[in-house]
Simulated scan of single mutants.
Amino acid sequence: MKNFTKELTYKTSRSSGAGGQNVNKVETAVTVMWNPSETAHFSAEEIELISQKLKNRINLEGILQLTVSESRTQLQNKKIATEKVIELVNKALIKPKIRKPTKPSKRQVEKRIQTKKQLSEKKENRKFRF
């Protein structure tokens, strides 16, 4: 987990929702912005991985944007936004294990066929005969 929080930029805007009369005056919603291609904390491979996995959240200028207006305070929203960006980037850097294709053992195949035969016999015995 690398600390790239110094590269984040913040922009505030008026938030909708709870807040009473204050909601029309105070800019509590926080938009956090980060450009992964201009970071000094990640290798080129990691930047490519981040860009690939978060392509739906990265705009045409190549900036990762996230807006938070969960809390009534700007400071709390800023904290939440920072945590969410860090979490997103950390999840994007996780490489899934490569699946190795396997075959069922002879015993498993035999057991499956045997079970199918038993079921078939059971159903065959249910038929009405004259």
Score class of each variant (00 low, 15 high):
residue 109 V to E: 12
residue 45 E to H: 05
residue 97 K to V: 09
residue 85 V to A: 03
residue 12 T to R: 03
residue 55 K to C: 05
residue 102 T to Q: 14
residue 22 N to F: 12
residue 2 K to E: 13
residue 77 N to E: 08
residue 98 I to D: 04
residue 64 L to G: 08
residue 86 I to N: 08
residue 6 K to M: 07
residue 1 M to Q: 05
residue 127 K to Y: 08
residue 89 V to T: 05
residue 112 R to S: 04
residue 126 R to A: 03
residue 36 P to C: 02
residue 44 A to P: 08
residue 76 Q to D: 05
residue 107 R to Q: 14
residue 16 S to N: 03
residue 129 R to E: 03
residue 83 E to C: 00
residue 16 S to P: 00
residue 54 L to T: 14
residue 125 N to T: 02
residue 13 S to Q: 07
residue 3 N to F: 10
residue 18 A to I: 05
residue 76 Q to W: 00
residue 10 Y to E: 01
residue 33 M to P: 02
residue 16 S to M: 02
residue 27 E to G: 01
residue 22 N to D: 13
residue 110 E to N: 09
residue 97 K to W: 02
residue 112 R to M: 05
residue 80 I to A: 02
residue 73 T to A: 15
residue 22 N to T: 08
residue 124 E to K: 08
residue 37 S to V: 12
residue 2 K to N: 14
residue 23 V to W: 04
residue 9 T to W: 03
residue 112 R to A: 05
residue 18 A to M: 06
residue 91 K to M: 07
residue 41 H to I: 00
residue 115 T to F: 07
residue 3 N to D: 15
residue 67 T to F: 06
residue 105 S to K: 14
residue 30 V to M: 07
residue 124 E to I: 04
residue 6 K to V: 07
residue 69 S to H: 14
residue 55 K to S: 12
residue 40 A to Q: 06
residue 27 E to L: 04
residue 108 Q to F: 04
residue 103 K to P: 01
residue 86 I to W: 10
residue 96 P to L: 07
residue 24 N to S: 14
residue 9 T to D: 03
residue 3 N to C: 12
residue 120 S to F: 09
residue 22 N to G: 14
residue 69 S to E: 15
residue 30 V to K: 03
residue 29 A to W: 05
residue 65 Q to T: 05
residue 19 G to L: 01
residue 130 F to H: 13
residue 106 K to V: 11
residue 121 E to P: 00
residue 41 H to S: 07
residue 115 T to C: 01
residue 105 S to H: 09
residue 96 P to R: 06
residue 35 N to P: 01
residue 54 L to R: 15
residue 33 M to K: 12
residue 102 T to K: 15
residue 22 N to M: 07
residue 84 K to N: 12
residue 5 T to I: 14
residue 26 V to W: 02
residue 18 A to Q: 10
residue 79 K to H: 11
residue 79 K to D: 09
residue 103 K to S: 10
residue 60 L to H: 11
residue 36 P to Q: 04
residue 12 T to N: 04
residue 21 Q to N: 07
residue 55 K to Q: 07
residue 61 E to K: 15
residue 23 V to G: 10
residue 6 K to Q: 12
residue 113 I to H: 06
residue 98 I to W: 02
residue 46 E to A: 09
residue 124 E to M: 07
residue 75 L to N: 09
residue 130 F to T: 11
residue 28 T to I: 07
residue 14 R to D: 10
residue 42 F to W: 04
residue 113 I to P: 04
residue 87 E to A: 15
residue 109 V to M: 13
residue 118 Q to M: 15
residue 103 K to H: 07
residue 49 L to R: 13
residue 56 N to S: 11
residue 6 K to Y: 08
residue 104 P to K: 14
residue 58 I to H: 13
residue 126 R to I: 03
residue 89 V to N: 03
residue 33 M to G: 02
residue 21 Q to M: 03
residue 110 E to D: 04
residue 115 T to G: 09
residue 120 S to M: 11
residue 31 T to P: 10
residue 86 I to K: 14
residue 109 V to R: 15
residue 123 K to T: 01
residue 19 G to T: 00
residue 104 P to H: 09
residue 13 S to V: 01
residue 107 R to F: 14
residue 39 T to M: 00
residue 102 T to F: 09
residue 129 R to W: 02
residue 86 I to P: 06
residue 123 K to H: 01
residue 126 R to S: 08
residue 19 G to E: 00
residue 130 F to Q: 11
residue 69 S to G: 13
residue 13 S to W: 01
residue 80 I to P: 12
residue 98 I to Q: 11
residue 100 K to L: 02
residue 29 A to L: 05
residue 30 V to D: 03
residue 37 S to C: 09
residue 101 P to V: 05
